[in-house]
Amino acid sequence: MFPRPISEYSRGYRALYQVVLPVSLIVWLLPLIGIAITSIRPAQDLATGNYFGLPSAIALGNYVEVFTTSAMGDYLWNSLRITLPSVAGAVAISCLTGYALSSYRFRGNLLLFFIFVAGNFVPFQILMVPVRDLTLQLGLYDTVTGLVLFHVAFQSGFCTLFMRNFIRALPHELVESARVEGVSEWRIFWYIILPLMRPAIAALSVLVFTFVWNDYFWALVLTQGAGSQPITAGLNALNGQWVSAWQLVSAGAIVAALPPVAMFFLMQKHFIAGLTMGATKG
């Protein structure tokens, strides 16, 4: 283990570490703590200049106000309507592509795989004009469906990379012996491979949920207004509307941040396994 475990150090060092650890965490999260406190600060505190002291009262009313005086509820609902189908679509598609690229030998296999990988890293701006144009022509501009289709397509690049590498690590003998038994290719996939892919599906779902939920650029490009925009774009619009009503901006920001954070805490192991894939492979 590197560095040497703190338990092997002298008592003084150990005590120091126990003090430095929480202090550094507080400093690291200071901006976040600040905004969390501001979100429950009554408006009169801000009016009287009490920005950094303890709030004079806990004003959970800020959160109520966010939902009653703005379209925050709509934005939140749109985010769900965009994110859940995108996750389902991208993960389903990549189970198929990942399996095909990992388990069959055919010409162009590796090339196709690297197109998926490379496409994943291109700047969004190179896709922006044609994708917006296509969405307009399909009559899907400013709709949740238009955004979902793009997310499914784009995320399937990363998901394919992930799934393909995962399936390759599975024992291939299972597939071979099933083939000898005359089991059809689809049944092999459905009854043998798919059940083994559960951990990968879980990890990818959490990751893609976060990616899509946090998207802001494509929401700007493909949607406008509370009818279809997700919470990220909505928050930006509301930020203009609530000029210097920081208690509302803060409450809105916390609302927007919560779902991915909850997802992360519930599925932490999967999340980190997905994110760091490749960090250990030589």
């Binding site: 592509t97 690229l101 690049g157």
Partner: peptide, 16 residues
């Protein structure tokens, strides 16, 4: 197996 993914990725990422 590849068809849905390849079509989507081609239309929304590679061709653009």
């Amino acid at each position: 197996f590849l068809a849905p993914g390849v079509v989507m990725f081609a239309v929304y990422v590679v061709l653009p």
